[in-house]
Design a protein around this nucleic acid. Structure first.
Lengths: 332, 332
DNA sequence: CTGAAAGCGCTTACAG
DNA sequence: CTGAAAGCGCTTACAG
């Protein structure tokens, strides 16, 4: 079932039939309805390959994600994929764990000339970025900022959020703060750390101790707790660069050292993944404003796909604040 | 940069250049190397839209998933997407929560004529199935069986696995078993229930009490625990249709009724999601053989994409057994 | 083994 | 407002 079939069936030209399916096209309303109705009856579906070949637009959004299997990103992915379909675009997912994987995967993606690529990973190589730029495919960074001045991005105000955490801890009587850093140069980690450290200083307390981890995962949290045993007596509260990091740290500190939370140590996570609200975790956490971030991403996506200019290129959504639960004590 | 550009550059025909990129094609090795080398230098990438238009093959695998945001499926998705890229295919993700969503989403997917569609949801309507069949797109059901005799599928031996759970519970001294059912007609739920009930009967114990839930999620587990309070004294062990269901039930029973697990109630989950091994959950569970299931899925996918006949159409991977952790007691 | 040509199903100037 | 025709970048019989 092609346009040609409809044209033959209706005994009008192929060109006219084609025009019936496009917006802002010069065609009599009568003819348009006729074509549309008949197409519906015949179960016509446009061939996207033919269309893309002719228009050079694909309505495909590429998504590059290092950890599909991470609660926060799977939440985002779920929301995003649904919304993308609502604006009649499709989502092509690219996995990978290492920079080299990405470069290879990106090759595959680029072959489909996506209208835009959403980046959920810091691992894109310079070469890959250059390639996308060369092909004219806009890159939208989600929850991270790129050094690339041409890149688009949607983030949140991590520094302000982290400052809120410092305030909460200090206001509730904590004096020896610490930050559990993901230990890599992810911008989210750095911004959270900076905001937290700055505000603590501003409030007149000694700079938070920085406890290193080797990533954002639960296992990284476990390992960090093991390594940080010596330092535990010196701190009374810990802000973690992610929820999983906080949960891993808390589980291991409880299990191995019998640490009582929040009596001996208050713990604050970051993101507010679904797990954080479970009574078995009951984690106080700084919320990531996912809804608004997804909204902004979609707005960008649809503007870009319509060839509109997007300004500013980087949007920062304000923090939605802290959800207080059972892992933080109120000492005064 | 197109085939034509290369042809012009090398001063040979377009057809010959095209042949250089295909396998099993008649062309001198010398010419092939010449073309390949030059293409590499020029940074040529085939246009998949043009190719698909000509060949009617797309190398796209559509994935229909009702809950991307569920630990077990995000684990599978992560593995799958990586493996799919290794065989040089791409993954297009279709979300949706309700049957009507799927039908709409499927329309979009079908426009890309995927080489196959992977179904991770029971919600496909008859009309949608019919449409895929009509378009000649094979449907591969993952972890579920379809009534459709033409459908492909990869599952596991849920009944045998569930029987193992009954054996474990009975062997360790439990006598009043129960099953927490997802309450819907998902084949996984039914098979697990059947295997569990059958084996319990075979072992000469009264049939397990069936406790109803309203799905497979953590929240469904919470709600089931609330509703099941009256029945708790009558049972000493509970096999749950999913890990999340088990975790939700356990959390809520502990929090609301102060139930001691496993002293008062042994709980067994199903799937072995990453969370189950966390010390805060420490859940005994029947493992889903994800690795092997993904292997089988990929084997099917690549056979189908090469036009080979796949027989049998439905593969069942054996259960990988139970991982015993802290939510089950050994009473003898 | 190589080349000329038709075709895949659309879009879109260009005439009328 | 409609139609005839070229073009998007590939593949693949058909000749040579």
């Amino acid at each position: 079932m092609t346009l040609k079939d409809i044209a033959l069936d209706l005994d009008i030209s192929l060109a006219t039939v084609a025009r019936a399916f496009q917006k802002d096209t010069i065609i009599s309303e009568e003819t348009r309805q006729l074509v549309l109705r008949r197409a519906e009856q015949l179960g016509y579906r446009a061939n996207v390959f033919a269309r893309s070949l002719a228009t050079r637009k694909t309505r495909i959004v590429g998504v590059i994600m290092s950890s599909v299997n991470s609660p926060i990103y799977s939440e985002v992915l779920a929301k995003l994929s649904e919304r993308i379909h609502r604006i009649d675009m499709s989502l092509m997912l690219i996995p990978g764990s290492y920079a080299q994987d990405f470069d290879a995967s990106l090759q595959t993606l680029m072959a489909y000339s996506p209208d835009a690529i959403l980046v959920f990973s810091g691992l894109l190589s310079e070469a890959a970025i250059e390639q996308a730029k060369h092909a004219g495919v806009p890159l939208i960074y989600f929850n991270r900022v790129s050094r690339d001045p041409d890149a688009y991005g949607v983030g949140c105000d991590n520094e302000a959020g982290a400052a809120l955490v410092a305030d909460l801890l200090i206001d509730s009587g904590h004096e020896r703060l610490a930050f559990l850093s993901s230990g890599n140069d992810a911008t989210t980690n750095i911004e959270r750390m900076t905001g937290f450290v700055e505000r603590t200083r501003m409030r007149g307390l000694p700079a938070p101790k920085i406890i290193p981890a080797t990533g954002f995962s639960y296992e990284d949290g476990l390992n960090a707790a093991l390594a940080a045993r010596e330092q535990l007596p010196a701190i009374d509260s810990l802000f973690c660069a992610s929820d999983l990091l906080a949960l891993g740290f808390a589980d291991e500190a409880r299990r191995r050292f019998g640490l009582r939370i929040p009596e001996e140590l208050s713990i604050v996570g970051c993101q507010n993944i679904a797990l954080a609200s479970w009574s078995s975790h009951d984690l106080t956490t700084l919320c990531l404003p996912i809804e608004r971030m997804v909204d902004e991403t979609l707005a960008m996506l649809s503007s870009l796909s319509q060839g509109q200019i997007v300004e500013p290129r980087v949007v920062r959504v304000p923090s939605t604040g802290i959800t207080e639960r059972g892992t933080t004590a109120r000492k005064k």
